[in-house]
């Protein structure tokens, strides 16, 4: 599903954001990517979306070889991925319904399908009643749920989120995370880059910890921080 082989990313200014990363995430998995600020989480997400290209190594996503993907093929890669950002990124001039519908217009879906999928997706995130509202009439949590509905409407096999709860209060954050687990139960692979320590700790999912561009820990049912380190802190 997602595979990194000896991937390094050096930005134009010389910053080495990722250093020889090897990573394999299987179909149907739920994985957190955690690490301190500047450790390279967003860079990893950007490589998956081909927003940036790796300086070294190979990245495979949904069967696409990212490094050799042509510019005009990038939209098709992105259509196979549902994307959620910290700042929601909804179209301000469109209603909730239109925002979700838009993702299907892009893929030239049949109107019949649009009429079926959009309400279903909005129902899944619990926003059927707000279909006619504009993004600025919604709370942060509601906006992020619209973003989720949009990310899911085309039935992507992979959902990737970069700090999806970064702008939300703890309670709302929990709701969003629960939604993503539910989506994962329905068979979608989910990757979440996050800082939410308490959520990561209580969800008991795979945790990939990176620091200074390197994977320092990769555990099933992991914790936000190394347990040894934790016990040191609390001892």
């Amino acid at each position: 599903m997602v595979e990194f082989r000896k991937v390094s990313k050096k930005y134009a200014n010389g910053t080495l954001a990722l250093n020889k990363i090897d990573l394999h995430i299987n179909k149907g998995e739920f994985a957190f990517v955690v690490g301190p600020s500047g450790s390279g989480k967003s860079t990893l997400v950007k490589l998956v979306l081909k927003e940036e290209n790796p300086t070294e190594g190979e990245v495979y996503v949904n069967g696409y070889d990212i490094s050799s993907l042509k510019r005009r093929e990038v939209p098709y890669l992105r259509r196979s991925i549902g994307i959620v950002f910290q700042d929601f990124r909804l179209l301000p001039n469109k209603t909730v319904y239109e925002n979700v519908e838009f993702a299907m217009q892009i893929t030239e879906s049949l109107p019949k399908e649009i009429r079926r999928q959009v309400p279903m997706s909005l129902g899944l995130v619990g926003l059927s009643k707000k279909a006619d509202a504009y993004p600025n009439q919604l709370s942060g949590g509601e906006q992020q749920r619209v973003a989720l509905a949009r990310a899911l409407v085309n039935n992507p096999s992979l959902l990737i989120a970069d700090e999806p709860t970064g702008n939300l209060d703890p309670e709302t954050s929990w709701e969003i995370m629960k939604l993503m687990t539910e989506i994962n139960y329905r068979g979608t692979t989910v990757i979440v880059a996050t800082h939410e320590k308490s959520i990561v700790n209580s969800m008991k999912k795979r945790v990939i910890a990176i620091d200074k561009g390197q994977i320092i820990r990769d555990e099933e049912k992991g914790q936000y921080e190394n347990e040894v380190k934790n016990s040191q802190i609390y001892s």
Binding site: L49, P75, Y76, R78, R89, L91, I106, T107, A151
Partner: peptide, 16 residues
């Protein structure tokens, strides 16, 4: 430009 950026990320082609 934000709108354009969003469209790119949800997989719109350049012509679209």
């Amino acid at each position: 430009r934000k709108e354009i950026n969003i469209m790119k990320f949800i997989g719109a082609t350049d012509w679209f």
